[in-house]
């Protein structure tokens, strides 16, 4: 166990019937970190989170949450937005949030101010007396998020928080997550949509078939999985791009819908290569391609599996 970690799992395994949902998982999340757990549907993300929350219990392995052996002992310091989230449809918004605040042991005198402040903060002031069933899905998701943070938790666990949201609501929710992180909360969130993780994570954990396949800071991943590819679009569409492979840095050139992808030879310096290309053909666009988590994931799992999960990982981005 790592002392001082907000969260640590050691050798956690969970089996349902013949299926291993989580397989010997080790994970340590330092206090104040923003971790993303990514992987396709059925990878074991939700089961892992439920084990962290002590909603499910591991068959084997140890869990430590905020220094306690079980989340049950630290529930008042944890905020949780489950994937399968619901509300009491007939309950009024303020009553629901107040109820959740009281269940999280918020002092009675603080309940009403926090509810009012929270609704104001997420742009839902004035909805206090509305029944939950009267809200749109995006508004409801904000209320649910608010219920998860109403007690200002030290650890915030979000399971697929952006699922089903339109781009505007997703952006608003992303900003709220980042606000909580700035406040000092440790954040762990799961998603099967890689771009969401790329946007806000500091550190990424990839899970595939219950096993951890990657556990690295985002920067390190980018360095490690540098595709050494340059995206190039000539200023003159009729420019002689076919001559580029003759340059010593360039391995091959492939036409894409918006221009060309130039693959560099191993050992070549991308900065020098970009200068040479720009000198040879005036560019309208010239940039170093950044590795996408999706590509990283597909490279790690490889083979047939990659083909199966590719569409799923892109699913909500398209």
């Amino acid at each position: 166990m790592t002392t001082g970690a907000a969260l640590s799992l050691h050798g956690v395994t969970k089996t349902f019937g013949d299926m291993k949902a989580v397989d010997r998982l080790d994970l340590t999340v330092p206090r104040g970190a923003l971790y993303g757990v990514i992987g396709p549907n059925g990878a074991g993300k939700t089961t892992t989170i439920r084990i962290i929350m002590s909603i499910l219990f591991a068959d084997v392995g140890q869990v430590s949450v905020l220094g306690r052996a079980s989340a049950l002992d630290a529930k008042n310091r944890i905020g949780y937005l489950p994937e399968e989230r619901g509300v009491y449809r007939k309950m009024r918004v303020a009553a629901f949030l107040s109820y959740m605040a009281r269940l999280k042991d918020v002092a009675e005198r603080d309940v009403a101010p926090r509810v009012a402040r929270g609704l104001e903060r997420v742009g839902l002031a004035g909805t206090e007396r509305k029944r939950c069933e009267e809200l749109s899905k995006g508004m409801l998701q904000k209320v649910q998020f608010l219920a998860a943070i109403i007690h200002e938790p030290d650890l915030l666990i979000l399971d697929e928080p952006f699922s089903g949201l339109d781009p505007v609501s997703a952006r608003q929710l992303r900003d709220l997550v980042l606000e909580e992180h700035r406040r000092g909360a440790t954040i762990l969130f799961s998603t099967h949509v890689m771009p969401h993780a790329e946007e806000i994570c500091e550190h990424v954990v990839m899970i595939h078939r219950g096993r951890k396949v990657l556990d690295e800071p985002l920067g390190a991943i980018r360095r490690q999985f540098d595709p050494r590819t340059i995206l190039f679009e000539p200023f003159d569409p009729a420019a002689d791009v076919a001559s580029l492979p003759r340059y010593p840095d360039v391995e091959r050139v492939e036409a894409t819908s918006g221009g060309y992808e130039i693959a560099l030879r191993p050992g070549s310096d991308p900065a020098t290569a970009m200068q040479r290309i720009a000198a040879a053909i005036a560019p309208a666009r010239l940039e170093l391609s950044r590795p996408r988590l999706e590509d990283v994931f597909l490279r790690i799992v490889g083979g047939d599996t990659a083909a199966c999960v590719r569409d799923e990982l892109r699913g909500e981005v398209a």
Partner: peptide, 16 residues
């Protein structure tokens, strides 16, 4: 009702 409306997992984050 709590189970089918999925509110139960929200509650289980606060209570056992």
């Amino acid at each position: 009702e709590e189970k089918s409306s999925r509110v139960v997992e929200v509650l289980l984050s606060a209570v056992s």
